[in-house]
Amino acid sequence: MNEKTIFLEKVSELFFENGAKAVTMDDVAKHVSISKRTLYEEYKNKEELLTAILDFKLQKIIDTIKTNDAENTNAIEKVLIKDNDFEKFSSTNQSVFIRQLLKYYPSIFDQHILNMNEKISEFLVKNIEKGREEGLYRADFNESLYIRFLLKIMLSFENSVLFENEQCERSNFCFEGVLFYLYSISTEKGREILEKAKLKQ
């Protein structure tokens, strides 16, 4: 693990624990034991640092997806990710962080969503093609639209008044969202495999 990765891991934890708004660049410098001058040489402001954190966390999710995708499994099992790092990321105090991003740094959040859509869509489009070849997914739905439906569901945990008082863990919420997506696109054969795959989780 290189120095930049270690730095972003530590700083991510600081922001997730305290929120996007409350943490200052002074706090960051103290947390990782570097001078403010050194910090500002790497990141000219807090907005740039927040962007780097979001890119870093998104890449970790993409790496997890790629690792899972490389396994010799069917299309449905490739989507049902239950990885320790992914769970750890999902179960942090991320809701406060995301809600503060939405309120105080909306342009950063919007760009993050566009990046997420681009990177995850690439995987999901290939997954849909594989699922159709295996007879697990329906042929009569709009891939691009359904992928955006899934991302919208995932983001609704922090971005909807309907879930402000949700009691379940974020990781469980996301997993249920993935199940909702898979059931909506699966054939009868696919649903049988989905039921079996759920038991393995």
Rank of each mutant, 00 (worst) to 15 (best):
K78T: 05
K78M: 03
K78C: 03
K78Q: 07
L80W: 02
L80F: 01
I81Y: 07
I81E: 03
I81C: 03
K82S: 12
N84G: 05
F86G: 08
F86I: 05
E87M: 10
F89Y: 15
F89P: 04
S90N: 15
S90F: 14
S91E: 15
S91Y: 13
S91I: 06
T92L: 07
T92R: 12
N93T: 12
N93F: 14
S95P: 11
F97N: 06
I98G: 04
I98H: 07
I98Y: 10
R99Y: 06
Q100T: 11
Q100P: 09
L101D: 00
L101S: 00
L102R: 06
L102S: 07
L102C: 06
L102V: 07
K103D: 10
K103L: 10
Y104C: 05
Y104G: 09
Y104F: 13
Y105H: 14
P106Y: 07
P106D: 07
S107Y: 11
F109N: 01
F109K: 01
D110C: 01
Q111C: 04
H112V: 07
H112C: 12
H112F: 15
I113L: 14
I113Y: 09
L114N: 05
N115T: 02
N117M: 04
N117I: 05
N117Y: 05
K119Q: 11
K119N: 06
I120M: 10
E122P: 02
E122Y: 10
E122T: 08
F123I: 11
F123K: 12
F123T: 09
F123Y: 15
F123V: 11
L124E: 04
K126E: 01
N127H: 02
I128P: 03
I128T: 06
I128K: 06
I128F: 14
E129P: 05
K130W: 02
K130L: 13
G131Y: 08
G131W: 08
R132A: 08
R132N: 06
R132C: 08
E133G: 07
E133S: 13
G135T: 03
G135M: 04
R138E: 08
A139D: 04
A139W: 01
A139P: 00
A139R: 01
A139M: 02
D140C: 03
F141G: 01
F141H: 02
F141C: 01
E143Q: 09
I147R: 01
R148Y: 04
R148E: 06
F149R: 12
F149I: 12
L150D: 00
L150Q: 03
L151E: 09
I153V: 14
L155V: 06
L155I: 08
L155W: 12
S156M: 10
S156T: 10
F157I: 03
E158T: 09
E158K: 01
E158Y: 08
E158V: 02
E158F: 09
N159Q: 13
N159I: 11
S160R: 10
S160N: 14
S160M: 14
S160L: 14
V161Y: 13
L162Q: 04
F163H: 11
N165M: 10
N165C: 09
N165D: 14
N165K: 15
N165S: 14
E166T: 13
Q167M: 05
Q167R: 05
C168M: 15
E169K: 14
R170W: 04
R170T: 04
R170K: 09
S171D: 12
S171Q: 08
